[in-house]
Design a protein around this nucleic acid. Structure first.
Length: 590
RNA sequence: CGGGGCGUGGCUCAGUUUGGUAGAGCGCUGCGUUCGGGACGCAGAGGCCGGCGGUUCAAAUCCGCCCGCCCCGACCA
């Protein structure tokens, strides 16, 4: 079995080095008090337990225990990726700048740039679409060479404006990234589904519950896009979900449901222009006119491809530019600057309104359709209209869902959206032909015609997943790792190292477990029992074996980290008993 | 990049308001006692108080600039 392929049988080969299995000879720098830098429970425990150490903002060292966990997470991912038919390779950190220029991603703001002594420019790899596409365009020329899915597990570098929460958002981080290459849409759907299932298994094996969310592909472009979220209050992503209908989406993507029958403006007084001196913002206008922000309709002027569009959204809502772009069938929309706004409205930004506006398409958020009597801009400096109604005072070309969804909004399936926080541990993307077209990655179809390769990409944060587990698997005493990624499966606490009987019993169990393929750490440090117990709980070894005073009666104590109480087992069969317990526990994560 | 907070032995912090040349707990070293849930006693080591400049007889403390770190927001390919 090749190195790195993880399974029960391959477990001993997980670590190429011969790691010391005695605490006195390894490096366990636990901290009694958490460094002030950490806020989240999992982050604090990773620091206290001696798993990681901050080197600089968003830059971490993995200490020996942390590296073991990281490797295990990586190996689970590797194993499932291999089972899904992906093939591992390794691409460089240094990416020649010209490669990124081919796709225009040389302007990505998070890019780290550097140059060699001759002045040749490189970027530090932040993701590897260009590098892998360059490989594929060189070697893949026929539909018969596909489907193909290549992946690597490697450090990524992103100059994040704000690194945060330990391993959750780093400037340098270990990531699994896979890239699929297909010749037809059916194969694209197949690999997408296969990666989806592979991800589900990976996270399951790590002991993580994930919620799959519809996601916004944003500027990376393309078709379907899902994110795997670990739901926890400390998560940085807003997720909206409707449990009953089984709908979940990232807040920046989330659709809004509901029925919006046309409102009847007949009871509303006629529209009237009023003075609103200097009142530009929603806040200023509504407080000046003494109305709620929901009674104001913002008119946002955007450039959408070669068209100019006015988007109408209620004052208490936020326009979702991705949704708007999708509804308009363009790649992206951009806010018009003050000069362009004056050309169209004859007024400053802040006074644009739909009444009498010409030369632009008018699209309004769907909820406006069933409401009336609004404050809108007057298309003249310091003027607004009150009692404006669509249909009567201005004509909306189209109503559509174009605003940012919020907690409490109607869900697409008919329920209500509820907001939770999530850590995005993985995502899967259909890229289409964006990169293959830009880079000339073409293949010959069966009919002899040349077409661009259809691509997909799949990312999974290894370190981020590790901390996500820490965030959801802990209690007041420390971490509670699932056995699949725990730094060691079993810890043996030698209570009194002076006692020969205890010492021999511990060594015997240790050797027996090692022979049985169990990852065991013998805590033989010259410490009192207290700190050893505290450290065992803090570090979170799944199973604890205590060689203490019971040894003189031929007994040792065993206790699962997750349980409050342990039990005593006979010393003479201890190793076999424990190994069997470990095997059973492992099997629950496979 | 905007807003807020912070920077004092390895860790957690006090001292800064009101200037007088640095403290506690934990950790560390040695000796002794102790030894099943972060022991106790005694004796020690360890800090140019983030950096630079200024004010002053005198600066951890006041002023200016810079750097770093954390949180909120923007951003997040």
């Amino acid at each position: 079995m090749p190195f790195g392929q993880s399974s029960v049988a391959g477990r001993q080969s997980l670590f190429a080095y011969n790691a010391p299995m005695r605490a006195s000879r390894t490096f366990l720098p636990t901290l009694r008090e958490a460094p002030a830098e950490a806020e989240l429970a999992g982050h604090r425990l990773l620091l206290r337990g001696g798993f990681i150490r901050r080197v600089s903002a968003g830059v971490y060292s993995y200490l020996p225990l942390g590296l073991r966990v990281l490797n295990k997470v990586a190996n689970i991912v590797r194993d499932e990726a291999n089972k899904a038919g992906c093939i591992e390779l390794l691409m460089p950190v240094l990416v020649p700048f010209e490669l990124l220029q081919e796709t225009g991603r040389d302007k990505v703001p998070v890019l780290y740039k550097t140059q060699d002594r001759t002045g040749r420019e490189f970027a530090l790899g932040f993701t590897h679409e260009e590098v892998v596409t360059d490989i594929v365009r060189t070697f893949v020329h026929s539909y018969r060479q596909m489907p193909l899915c290549l992946y690597q597990i490697q450090n990524k570098f992103r100059d994040e404006p704000r690194p945060r929460a330990g391993l959750i958002r780093c400037k340098e981080f270990l990531m699994f990234d896979a890239y699929s290459f297909d010749s037809n849409q059916e194969d694209v759907a197949k690999i997408y589904g296969r990666m989806w299932k592979a991800y589900a298994r990976m996270f399951e094996r790590m002991g993580l519950d994930t919620l799959v969310c519809e996601a916004e592909s944003g500027d990376i472009g393309g078709g379907e896009n899902h994110e795997f979220m670990v739901i926890t209050p400390g998560g940085e992503d807003r997720v909206l979900q409707d449990d009953e209908a089984g709908y979940a989406a990232n807040a920046d993507r989330c659709d809004i449901g509901g029925e919006y029958p046309e409102s009847d403006p007949s009871e509303v007084p006629g529209a009237e222009m009023v003075d609103t001196p200097g009142a530009r913002t929603v806040q200023e206008v509504t407080s000046f006119l003494e109305v709620g922000p929901e009674k104001l309709v913002k008119t946002l002027l955007v450039q959408a491809g070669d068209r100019r569009v006015a988007a109408l959204v209620r004052g208490d809502r936020e326009l979702n530019p991705y949704k708007l772009a999708r509804r308009l069938g363009v790649e992206k929309v951009e806010m018009l600057d003050a000069k362009a706004v004056r050309e169209i409205t004859g007024a400053d930004i802040g006074f644009a309104g739909p009444i009498g506006l010409s030369g632009v398409e008018l699209i309004a958020d769907q909820e406006i359709r069933s409401e009336s009597d609004f404050v809108v801009g007057g298309n003249a400096d310091d003027k607004h209209y009150v009692h404006a109604c669509h249909g009567r005072d201005f004509k909306v070309g189209r109503f559509a869902d174009i605003r940012v969804a919020e907690q409490g909004d109607p869900a697409p399936g008919g329920g209500v959206l509820r907001e939770v926080r999530g850590i995005e541990v993985g995502d899967i993307f259909q890229l289409g032909c964006k990169y293959s077209e830009a880079m000339g990655a073409l293949f010959n179809e069966a009919d002899g015609k040349e077409r661009p390769i259809i691509m997909g990409c799949y990312g999974l944060g290894i370190g981020r997943s590790m901390q996500a587990v820490a965030e959801v698997s802990n209690d007041e005493n420390g971490l509670t790792w699932p056995i699949s990624i725990a730094p060691y499966e079993v810890v043996i606490v030698l209570v009194n190292a002076e006692d020969e009987g205890q010492r021999n019993a511990a060594a015997e169990i240790h050797d027996g477990l090692e022979k049985a393929g169990v990852e065991v750490l013998l805590d033989d440090r010259d410490e009192r029992a207290g700190p050893k117990f505290k450290d065992a709980d803090l570090i979170g070894y799944p199973l604890r074996v205590v060689c203490g005073r019971g040894v003189s009666e031929g007994k040792v104590e065993i206790k699962w980290r997750r349980d409050d109480d342990g039990s005593e087992i006979p010393l003479d069969a201890a190793a076999e008993t424990i190994a069997e317990m470990v095997r059973r526990e492992r099997s629950s994560f496979e």
